[in-house]
Computed example of a mutant assay.
Amino acid sequence: MVFTVIASGYHPRCALDSTDGAEVRVAKIAAMIGECDWGIHDLSRIEVDPGGLPRFNMPLELGLHLGARLLGEKRHRRKRALILDAERHRYDAAISDISGQDIEAHGKDPDEAIRCVRNWLSEHRPRNAPPLRGAAALQADYRAFQAEAGALLAPRRIDPDDLTHNDFLFAVHDWIEARAAPA
Rank of each mutant, 00 (worst) to 15 (best):
K74M: 01
L70C: 11
R88D: 14
A86F: 01
A129W: 10
K74Q: 10
S96Q: 09
D92N: 08
K79S: 05
R80Q: 15
R88Q: 15
N128D: 14
L82E: 03
R133V: 12
R88K: 14
G72Q: 03
D102S: 11
R88A: 15
A137W: 01
D109E: 11
G107R: 05
A129I: 08
R78T: 08
A68W: 10
A140P: 00
R133C: 10
A136N: 10
A68V: 00
R127W: 04
E104R: 08
A135S: 15
Q139R: 14
A129Q: 12
H89C: 12
Y91T: 03
E73D: 14
V117S: 01
R118Y: 02
A94G: 08
S99W: 01
R90W: 10
I98S: 01
I83A: 01
G107N: 06
R77H: 09
A81L: 08
A129K: 11
E104A: 12
S122E: 05
E112L: 14
I95H: 06
H106F: 04
A81W: 07
D92K: 08
L64A: 04
H76D: 15
A113F: 03
A147M: 11
F145D: 09
D102E: 10
I95R: 03
P110S: 07
R125H: 09
R77V: 00
R88W: 06
Q139F: 13
G134L: 07
E112H: 12
G100N: 09
H65M: 15
A136Y: 02
Y142I: 04
E73G: 10
I95L: 13
S99Q: 05
K74W: 00
L66F: 09
D85S: 11
A68E: 12
S96W: 00
D109T: 08
R115W: 11
A137F: 02
D109Y: 02
A147W: 08
N128A: 13
K108D: 15
D141Y: 07
L138G: 03
D109S: 10
Q101V: 05
K79L: 09
R133M: 12
L121A: 04
L82G: 04
K79I: 04
A147E: 15
K74T: 06
K108S: 14
Q101C: 10
K108N: 15
A136F: 03
